[in-house]
Every structure is written in structure tokens, then in C-alpha cells.
Design a protein around this nucleic acid. Structure first.
Lengths: 274, 274
DNA sequence: TGAGTTTTTATCGCTATGAGATAAATCTTA
DNA sequence: TAAGATTTATCTCATAGCGATAAAAACTCA
């Protein structure tokens, strides 16, 4: 049979101006993927359900795109559409990705038994966190019976600069890199106790480097105290942190340090691969 | 300058056969999105890291597509590429989606305080699950100090038919719908105790409907006992389940029921909106 | 060490795909 | 019940992205 008779004529491109900006800037980028994630991220505490037009306005897409992506994500099972109200909501399937991550993470693998042990030994809340730019992400969590804070869950992000795990990780980076993270952060006080000024933070990082652990007392949430130590990979680079979180009402600053510093440091060291 | 001289010739389409199958079948589907998720799902316990060519073969895509999607996902921050080994791995950013889900879920919102309470009261492991087709998904989890099973984490999926929460949810569905779920399942025994035959399951569902709770003893994991009750939405449809999981070594079947049945039922009822 | 093999990176032309406009249908609300 | 808003369906055109392939780099194993 005859194959395409289309003449091999090169078609003229229109408007090469803004073309360069987006199009040829990154030839391998598949933009639809970003848009799909943009739609999914539009949902949250503030937007438990969204109508089609809300999705459009929240994501800055036109109605046609919103239609296409909600349809696609609905078909893939990440979005459910209420037949009655025509509103969309996220489904539990969105947990799949994170599940794959946790299952594939060597760090989590190695850390888990030590975290469990630390949890039993202290009966306090234990967290495993990693850094993503200027934020830490909670990856694994063992809750204490004492304080059950449901605001922090797996996947929660917090600024590096005002958390014990964040400072602990920075303390094992070359100082200029650590300060680059600080400088990229949107520094501001969350509470009266938040350490948020550049030089105070540098001092805090140096101290953490010297001691091998970092602390944060009521820097994000009132009555929350935290002590953390960095986990190092085989190159000595920080790849995460272990921390113990307790209520300020139950321990003084000195008690937190005397009781828990050597435990977190030991745990973090055991998980490290240096 | 002269704009396109391309003759307004209708371009010949090649192979209109398989065209209909995929292309026009669903005009609104954006296939790139599915491919992106396919790439991400290739990672897991078995494949902690993947090279480009492995991604291609695992996902059944050609090398060019694998290249494009790994590149895209890397740029978006869901995939990290080791500069040394050129291998890819998932990042903690993949937890974002699930985070958005948990934050946006009214079910989780409503359930959380009751689950916490149940957790404190019993000191046992408490789970919140929802159903996705023939599987249940663990959405929220409060671990007991007694048994720490790290195999089950948030996002874990299990078959509906051999879990207490699964049967509990089916028990509030019309029997034909419940059996349709059973019939769509890949029924098989995981352990010697697994109830997996169609009529035994129907009987189990009926019993659960009569009692208001369902049980499963060592049906998936040896030494795991579980008792669950369904959470109903305002229409009376099951939208989830609460369960208490204990070790068989600590309680007899009768003890599990006598101690915990009224507690799970009460909790599930409190969370329900009927 | 260096030829052979595999894997990764870069580039390109073509066209199916998806963007965007718009029309039809459906739902709100005053 | 008419006007307005929102959702669903459909169409056309340009381009985004597919797939092929070439070039470079990284292994392999004599």
C-alpha cells in the first residue's frame, strides 16, 4: 500500500519570539505533567472540594485545560467527581506515590528499626526528616501517647531554619552552603522564641556542628521542644535527621538535652553510613 | 515575509485502524499524565533505583519517552538523578500528593479525634481505611507500642475480601454490589486461616451486617487479629472503616470480640454522618 | 589498553495530540 | 421563567511531544 505522499515541505513557524522563552528552552520537558500536578495541588485544607471553574481559576488554567486535566485525573483514579454536585476531590490513590517512595527509600529502610527502638525507649514522639531545599519534609513518624499533634503528618513541610532537624542537617554542610540555604529562606519569626536572624542562625549552626545535635524550643509551635541529630551518607553528606519532640511543659531545656541528646546522636549515628 | 505556503491539502492519516482504539476513544484524555505516573510507579521495594534503560523496560516505553519523562519528573522534583551513577530514585516530594489528600479529606478530619481517643483507650494499633475497588487503602494509622508492624504503612493496599475493614465496608452495601466486589477480586488464601471461598465470604459479610462489625484472624499475616466497623456517609453508604489490630498471641478470638467490638462500633458510629 | 558493546545524551523532522475557542446542555438564582 | 453561570461536547489548527537516530560517554572484557 502507498505510504504517505505528503510533500517533504518544511513548514514555516509563526512567532519565533516567545517561542524561545518556553518552547525551545527545554525541549525534553513535558508540560502536561506539570499541569496535572498543579491541578492535584490545588486541593488542600482550604479547598477540600473544587468545581471545574474553581480548578481553572486556582491553577490559572483556562476552562478547557481544567476540563481536560480533571477528566484525565479522574480516569486515572486520583480525582473523584461527585455526580450530584459535579465537584472534584482527591482520592486515597494519591497516597500511592508516597507509598512507593517510602518503600523504595534505603534511608527509611535503614532507619526504621532504630526509630522504633528509640520510640519504645523514650516513649516520646520520634521523626525522620529529609531536606528539600529550604524545607524539611517529615518522612516517618512515631507518635507518643503523651502529645498527639495531628497537625504534623507524613509529608508535612517546615522551614529548615527554625527546626531542630533542619539546623542539624545544615550543621554538616560546608558553612557557605548552609548559609546559602538560610539566605534562600523566607526568614521570619513564627513565635516569640523563633531564632530567625542571619547571624543568630549561623551561630546556632556552628553550635550544632560542635555539639553534634541541634535543638529548637517553641520556634514553630508553642510548647513544642525538639532535639535532632543528622544522618550522614557514605560521603559524609547529611541525608536526613532524627529528632525527638516533646512538650515543653514536661521538660526543661536542660532536661531535654541531658535526657535525649546522646540518644538522638547515637540513633542518627547508627543509621549513618559514613 | 511569506507565511506558510503549505497547500491546504488534507493530510493523509496512516493506519486508521488502531487510531480509533486509543486516539479518538477518549478525546479529553491527556496520555502524558498516565505515562508520568507509570514512570513513578516503576519504583518500589524491588526497584529502589532505576537507570534510564531500566525505566524504559519497566514501563514498556521506548528510550526516548523514558528520557523525556525522567527528565520532566526530575525537573519537577519528584525524581532525583545521581550524577555519579546516572540512576534515578524517588524523592520525598512524592509525599506531597498524599499530604494534600489527607489535608483535604473530610473523613480524616472527622475521624482523627475519635481515632486518637480509641488509641489512648485501648493502647492498641488503630487504623482508618477506605475502599478502592477490590482493595482497601490505609489512610491513617496509630501504632501500638506492643506490636510495631512496619510492613503496613499509610498508602498500603490489601484485598477487601480478607481484611476486617474490607468485609465491614461490604456489609453495608447491597448484597449484589458486595458480591460484585468479591467476584472482581483475585480470591486466594494467604494463610491457612484465610477465608477466601465465595459462599464463605457471603456468609461472613452477612454475619458482619448482622453484628455491625467484622473480624479477621491471621487471614493475611500470621498472628494478626483485626476487628473493624464501617463508617457511613449521610446516605448510609460505607465510606471507610475503623479497625483495631492486635497480636493473636495476646488475645483469644473471644477476647478480641468481647473487649473491642463495642469500642470499634461506637467509634465508627461517632465518625459516621448518617 | 583499546576494540566492542551498552547506555546515556543531544538533535531533528513529522504529525498525532492537545490547546483553545465555542456551541450546546444543564444547573442556579432572582 | 428568564437571565446568568457553569458544565459538557465538539471542532480546528498549530505545536508540543513522539519516535528515530546520531553522537558521546561509560562500561566490558580480552
Amino acid at each position: 500500500m502507498s505510504i504517505s505522499e505528503t510533500p517533504p515541505r518544511t513548514r514555516r513557524q509563526a512567532a519565533p519570539d516567545e517561542a524561545q522563552q518556553t518552547r525551545k528552552e527545554d525541549a525534553l520537558m513535558v508540560n502536561s505533567v506539570e499541569k496535572a500536578f498543579r491541578v492535584l495541588s490545588a486541593f488542600g485544607r482550604q479547598h477540600q472540594t473544587l468545581s471545574l471553574s474553581q480548578v481553572a481559576s486556582e491553577t490559572g488554567m483556562d476552562i478547557s485545560s481544567a476540563q481536560r486535566f480533571t477528566h484525565t485525573l479522574n480516569k486515572l483514579g486520583y480525582l473523584r467527581k461527585d455526580a450530584q454536585t459535579k465537584r472534584f476531590e482527591l482520592t486515597a490513590r494519591t497516597l500511592d506515590l508516597g507509598y512507593h517512595f517510602v518503600r523504595s527509600s534505603r534511608l527509611v529502610d535503614r532507619a526504621m528499626p532504630y526509630l522504633m527502638h528509640l520510640s519504645k525507649e523514650t516513649e516520646e514522639t520520634i521523626n525522620l526528616t529529609v531536606r528539600d531545599g529550604t524545607e524539611i519534609i517529615f518522612v516517618s513518624r512515631f507518635l507518643s501517647r503523651n502529645v498527639l499533634n495531628t497537625d504534623v503528618i507524613i509529608g508535612t513541610r517546615m522551614p529548615v531554619y527554625c527546626t531542630a532537624p533542619g539546623i542539624a542537617m545544615l550543621s554538616r554542610l560546608p558553612e557557605d552552603e548552609a548559609m546559602a540555604v538560610i539566605d534562600a529562606s523566607d526568614l521570619k519569626p513564627y513565635t516569640a522564641s523563633t531564632v530567625w536572624q542571619r547571624d543568630a542562625l549561623r551561630e546556632k549552626i556552628r553550635q550544632a556542628a560542635a555539639q553534634g545535635y541541634a535543638t529548637a524550643f517553641e520556634e514553630v509551635y508553642l510548647s513544642d521542644a525538639s532535639i535532632a541529630a543528622p544522618i550522614l551518607d557514605h560521603r559524609g553528606q547529611p541525608e536526613g535527621a532524627v529528632n525527638i519532640a516533646v512538650s515543653c511543659s514536661r521538660f526543661s531545656r536542660e532536661e531535654v538535652i541531658s535526657r535525649f541528646s546522646s540518644l538522638v546522636v547515637a540513633t542518627a549515628h547508627a543509621v549513618s553510613r559514613i
